[in-house]
Amino acid sequence: MKAVATYSTSDLSRKSGDIIADALRHPVTITQRNKPRLVLLSIEDYRRLVKRGDSRVASRLEDMPDDLFEEVKRAVDAYEREGEDR
Rank of each mutant, 00 (worst) to 15 (best):
L38Q: 08
V72F: 08
L68F: 01
L49F: 11
K73N: 02
G53K: 09
A78C: 01
R14H: 08
I20V: 15
R56Q: 11
F69C: 01
E70Y: 11
S59N: 10
A21V: 05
T9F: 07
L49S: 08
R52N: 05
M1Q: 06
V57R: 15
G53A: 14
I19C: 02
L12N: 03
V57W: 13
T31D: 03
E62P: 00
D11M: 01
T6H: 10
A3P: 13
S59F: 12
L24Q: 13
Y7E: 03
R25Q: 12
E82N: 06
M64L: 11
D66G: 03
S16L: 10
L12Q: 07
S10C: 06
I43Q: 07
T9E: 11
D45W: 00
R48C: 04
V72R: 04
A23F: 08
R33A: 15
L40N: 01
I19V: 08
R25K: 14
T6G: 10
V28N: 04
S13H: 11
I43R: 05
G83T: 13
D67I: 08
T6P: 04
D54L: 09
L49C: 11
H26M: 02
E70D: 14
D77H: 04
D77I: 05
L68P: 00
G53Y: 04
E82F: 04
V4A: 14
N34R: 11
V28R: 06
M1D: 07
A58L: 12
E62K: 08
L41F: 05
R81I: 12
R47I: 05
A78G: 06
M64W: 07
E82H: 09
R60I: 00
D63H: 03
R74Y: 03
L68I: 01
K51S: 01
A3Y: 14
T29E: 12
D77K: 06
R47P: 04
E82Q: 05
D85S: 13
S59V: 15
V76M: 05
D18N: 11
Y79H: 08
P36Q: 13
A78K: 06
D63Y: 00
R37I: 15
I30P: 00
M1H: 09
I20P: 10
R25F: 07
L41K: 14
T6V: 15
S13K: 14
Y7T: 00
L12R: 01
S42N: 04
R37L: 15
K51C: 00
F69D: 04
K35E: 12
E82V: 03
L24C: 11
T6F: 09
A23K: 06
V50G: 05
V76W: 11
V50R: 11
T9L: 09
E84M: 07
L61S: 06
V39C: 05
D66C: 06
D11P: 01
V57P: 10
G17P: 04
S55Y: 08
V4H: 09
E44C: 03
A21P: 06
S59P: 11
A78M: 02
D77N: 03
D18H: 05
Y7G: 00
A58H: 10
D77Q: 06
E84Q: 10
S42I: 03
A75S: 13
M64A: 06
E70Q: 14
D77R: 07
R60V: 02
V28K: 02
L61Y: 07
E44A: 09
E44H: 10
D85A: 14
R14D: 08
D22L: 00
R25V: 12
T29D: 06
N34W: 02
L38G: 01
M1Y: 03
T9R: 09
